[in-house]
């Protein structure tokens, strides 16, 4: 079979993304999802006690300072039912994210133009983890529900800036033989962190700090598994296509 470059990239990204998305969903069921659920009970408690305060307190100061309830404004906006429906959407979202990340990684690997094996694919996966998970999390730590952050648009912009700078920086450091370019890469790696991630004036969270810390560690471990799966399965598929 003679596949074009595009067909090869798309096929291996789809297979790797679906596989990694399904696997990471199973990992999340025993790691991050129980913490999200627990954090939401704290969040809902805080929201309902804030509502009670609002009825009794004359100024309602406590209510305005309390983090917003989890419904994000519209009470009537659609959300999946807790249980199987919610889990199904999580699986679906993870598979879409897996395919999306695998396509971005595939684009980078194709641009580099070297043959990819399971081992080198895993290394590409590690760089994906650094670019898309660890380095953005260095500025914007993983957040459990109920955490009061800076406006989401600002955080998304900083996240995007960090991913773009880190991707170019890692490519310069890894692929450029000249130390000048590697120096530029290191500088670029630091740029978003020197600018600084957006943080709220007063940080607050309804969940206990220990829960947030556990969540931060588990998201990093599961993201690392996710990315290494994406990379190594992409490598496996492209070995088969050779």
């Amino acid at each position: 079979m003679n596949f074009s470059s595009l067909q090869r990239t798309l096929t291996s990204a789809i297979i790797a993304g679906v596989f990694a998305g399904l696997l990471i969903s199973l990992v999340q069921i025993v790691t991050t999802i129980p913490i999200i659920t627990e954090a939401e009970t704290y969040e809902n408690q805080a929201a309902s006690s804030a509502a009670d305060d609002h009825h009794s307190a004359p100024a309602g100061a406590a209510a305005t300072e309390a983090p917003a309830a989890h419904s994000h404004g519209d009470e009537d906006s659609w959300a999946p039912e807790d249980g199987v429906e919610r889990l199904t959407y999580t699986f679906l979202s993870n598979v879409i994210a897996g395919v999306g990340f695998a396509l971005l990684l595939g684009a980078a690997m194709t641009m580099r133009g070297r043959a990819i094996t399971v081992q080198s694919g895993a290394l590409w996966g590690v760089s994906g983890f650094l670019v898309f998970s660890l380095l953005p999390a260095a500025g914007l730590p993983p957040e459990v529900p109920g955490t009061q952050g800076a406006p989401v648009e600002l955080r998304q912009m900083w996240w995007f800036l960090t991913v773009a700078c880190s991707a170019v920086a890692l490519a310069l450091i890894a692929f450029k033989p000249s130390w000048i370019w590697r120096g530029v890469g290191i500088a670029l790696l630091l740029v978003p962190h020197v600018i600084g991630a957006p943080h709220p004036e007063v940080a607050s969270s309804t969940a206990p700090a220990a829960l947030a810390a556990e969540f931060a560690i588990l998201t990093m471990i599961s993201s690392a598994i996710f990315w290494i799966m994406i990379g190594s399965v992409s490598g496996f598929i492209s070995e088969k296509f050779q």
Binding site: I24, T32, P80, T90, N94, S133
Partner: peptide, 10 residues
Amino acid sequence: AAHDSRHSLV
């Protein structure tokens, strides 16, 4: 729909 996935993938 993507809520838990967004939190887990940071």
